[in-house]
Amino acid sequence: MSSSTITEVPAAAGIVDPDLPRGGPPTDPLRVAAPARSRSAGRVGRALLPWLSPLALLVLWQALSSLGVLQESTLASPVTIAGTVRDLVTQGLFGSTLQQNTLVSAQRALLGFAIGAALAIVLALPAGLSAAGALVIDPPMQMLRMLPHLGLIPLFILWMGLGEQPKIALVAFGSVFPLYLNLVAGIRGVDRKIAEAATSMRLSRWQRIRYVVLPGAMPHAMTGLRQSLGVAWLTLIVAEQIAADRGIGKMIMDAREFLMNDVIVVGLVVYMLLGLLTDALVRLVERRVLAWRA
């Protein structure tokens, strides 16, 4: 008993390794959680794994349609919808193909989002960095964000007519707030201890903003960016369906007139894919910008 405790002493001392990183081994702490990822064969298998359940749902849908449980007049089957996609791509509907409509919608969303994001950054910097800026900018922003922006559609149509402008303006308006709010929170929530260390290194105010405040706000900014993007797509979908001469929304409205539920589903799937794609892009940016968090 006592001899075993003695032999354990050196091993116990070895555990206290001052150079052992807090998160685990020095290379990549994520590897510890998922060691199988290092093997390439296992990696491919794992990459496919998340697709299994959506695929199963699709098969179930098709089965229900084929068995007649799900009427084609209620919801078209996946096979029918695949055919519809082919027709929409090659022939189009009422003079415009699926690609053209997708491009128009994507342009509206991205342009509106870009304007909104730029506006959010321009407003959040003074509101986050200076007390005076916060006093001037924050109260109206807090009021406007409570305004249900989709309710502005009639007003925007009144002001800007039925062209591209009201849709882009509405998307921009909607996507300002998530990014603005997150960015202001990120800037104000900067780690005071790190900021103080920067002061002790005699960094100027601008240098502190450049090296401490803005990078420190990036995690929040990325969250805001993704939320803004989500709002941008949602706003676009609603705005397009109220009044549009082109785009996915117009295609869906036309399909409703002629009871083509397959075309409506295609439109929705396109929205979904566009949303997933842009979200994946932001996540890619996030991985690079926040590489230090790994």
Binding site: P18, D19, P21, R22, P26, P29, A291, W292, R293, A294
Partner: peptide
């Protein structure tokens, strides 16, 4: 290295 990958002593 990124600082978050260092041990406390490092």
């Amino acid at each position: 290295a990124w600082p978050l990958h260092l041990s406390g002593g490092q």
